[in-house]
Amino acid sequence: MGSSKIIRTIAQKLFPFIMLFGFYLISNGHLSPGGGFQGGVVLGTAIILLALSHGIEQTEKIFKSRWLNMLEKLGILTLIFLGFLGIFFGYSFLGNFLPLGRPGQITSGGLMLPFNIAIGIKVAAGVSAIFYALIKYRGEI
C-alpha cells in the first residue's frame, strides 16, 4: 500500500491525538457521552488509520497481532474477574465495592471506571484484530 507522503505524515501526526481522544472517552465514560465501547473503537480506528497509510506490515511491527489477540482475551477476563471481586467483597456478582466519591469526579463511578477500561482494551484490540484479519485473509475461502 503506497500512500503519498502527505497522507503518511498527517496520519502519523494525528495518531497520538486520536489515541488521546480514545482514552478520554474511556476514562470519562461514566460522566459524559462515551464509554468503553466508543473509546475502544476510537483507539482501534487509530491503529486502522496507521495500517491504511503506512501499510499493514509496518503497522504490524509495532502493534503485533499476537499481542492484540492476547489483549482482547485479557480484557474480557479482567471484566469477569472484576465481577467476581464483587462476590469476594461480600456483595453480589458485578456489585460495586469501590468508594463512590463525589459526583462529577473521575473516581465517582465506583466500578464503572475499571469496567470501561477493560471494555476499552477489549474493543480496541478486537477492532484492530478484525481489521488485520480482513486484510490478511482477503480472497481466501
Binding site: 474480557i76 453480589s92 456478582f93
Partner: peptide, 23 residues
C-alpha cells in the same frame, strides 16, 4: 457462597471459554 450459585452456573462456562483460548 451458596446465594451466588445462579450466576456461577452461567459465568463458569463463560470464564472457561476465554481460558480455553489461552491454553
Amino acid at each position: 457462597m451458596s446465594i451466588h450459585i445462579p450466576i456461577l452456573i452461567i459465568i463458569l462456562p463463560l470464564l472457561a471459554a476465554f481460558l480455553v483460548l489461552l491454553t
